[in-house]
């Protein structure tokens, strides 16, 4: 399957500042997280793929075309910027209709698309109000709506949860999930929030100081480790003693017992220790790493 986006030795300099330094990666269908701290080069990479800026060297290909030189591919993608980008005096309905037409959709179909997409992002009732009167959460939804109003193949979202309260963030992440899984539109999500990537993305590209730090499937990166977590309901001390007698070394953090480098046979020994000590096991599970753990453990 051809990549939606391809970066090959992609480099961008702003004067003496190197924003991106020879990065290469592909973005395929599904949800891809573009992760990194502020100043890592995420927004620069997005702008290069959108054709808003030209690479210093290397190439950024969008649907097999150079977006800076060709406008064809740009008709099939959507973009949701991080900053405010909405005209305050227009209604959401009028704005979306206009944006659909600017993406090449004829007026009749643009009207239908605008109404449909506003319904899908939950702004059906508010669509005839000027955007200037909207809350931050509603504006974020209009920004997402304008990015998908022309039914693109891929939508690039730049910090879509920025400035949202916890409820608004959950709602936005739910919408992103729907965009990919229900609407069938691939998503590239640029964020510095690992939680957003973990919640929504299939794969992740990590940028740090303009270079590619890591890439791969989120499931692979956060796969199960060889650490076992055990929580017992009672007879804690007796259980620890029984475990030690069977040669299973467990560290105690007060609430959980942690068995590092657990082997297959340790499960049976833990069961036997529980029977002997009379402790009731409330939880026995392998530890799943989060992206945060992965980045904490990476050498600086």
């Amino acid at each position: 399957m051809p990549a939606l986006l391809e970066a090959r030795n992609l480099t961008k300099h702003y004067g003496s500042t190197v924003a991106l330094d020879g990065v290469s990666f592909d973005v395929h269908e599904g949800v891809t997280g573009l992760l990194g701290p502020n100043g890592a080069g995420k927004s620069t990479a997005m702008k290069l793929f959108l054709g808003l800026i030209q690479p210093t060297s290397g190439s950024a290909m969008l649907l097999g075309e150079e977006p800076y030189r060709s406008t064809e591919g740009r008709a099939r993608i959507g973009y949701m910027p991080e900053n405010d980008c909405l005209p305050k005096s227009m209604t959401a309905s009028e704005f979306l209709m206009h944006m659909a037409q600017v993406s090449g959709i004829p007026p009749g179909q643009a009207r239908t698309r605008a109404a449909d997409v506003l319904r899908h992002v939950g702004l059906d009732e508010e669509r005839y109000r000027p955007i200037g009167e909207y809350s931050t959460g509603m504006k974020q939804r209009v920004k997402l709506a304008q990015a998908i109003v022309h039914d693109p193949v891929l939508v690039l979202l730049d910090e879509p949860t920025a400035g949202l309260d916890p409820d608004g963030r959950q709602e936005m992440l739910r919408l992103i999930h729907r965009t990919a899984n229900t609407f069938g539109i691939s998503v590239m999500l640029s964020t510095h929030l690992m939680g957003d990537v973990e919640r929504t993305a299939d794969s992740v590209i990590v940028l740090e100081s303009g270079v590619l730090a890591q890439e791969g499937a989120v499931a692979k990166l956060t796969e199960e480790t060889e650490t076992l977590l055990i929580e017992v309901a009672d007879r804690h001390e007796e259980f620890v003693t029984a475990l030690a007698a069977k040669g299973v070394q467990a560290s105690d953090d007060g609430q959980l017992l942690i068995v590092e480098q657990a082997r297959e046979a340790d499960y049976d020994l833990i069961r036997d220790a529980a029977v002997e000590s009379g402790a009731r096991i409330r939880r026995l599970s392998p530890e799943r790493r989060t992206l945060t753990d992965i980045f904490r453990s990476r050498p600086a």
Partner: peptide, 23 residues
């Protein structure tokens, strides 16, 4: 009917220019 994919015509750059003019 849920989300419907758009299968109608895409008129590209000329439609975009006309839309900006009208706006």
């Amino acid at each position: 009917l849920g989300y419907q994919r758009y299968t109608g015509p895409r008129e590209g750059r000329n439609r975009a220019r006309l839309a900006l003019f009208e706006n």
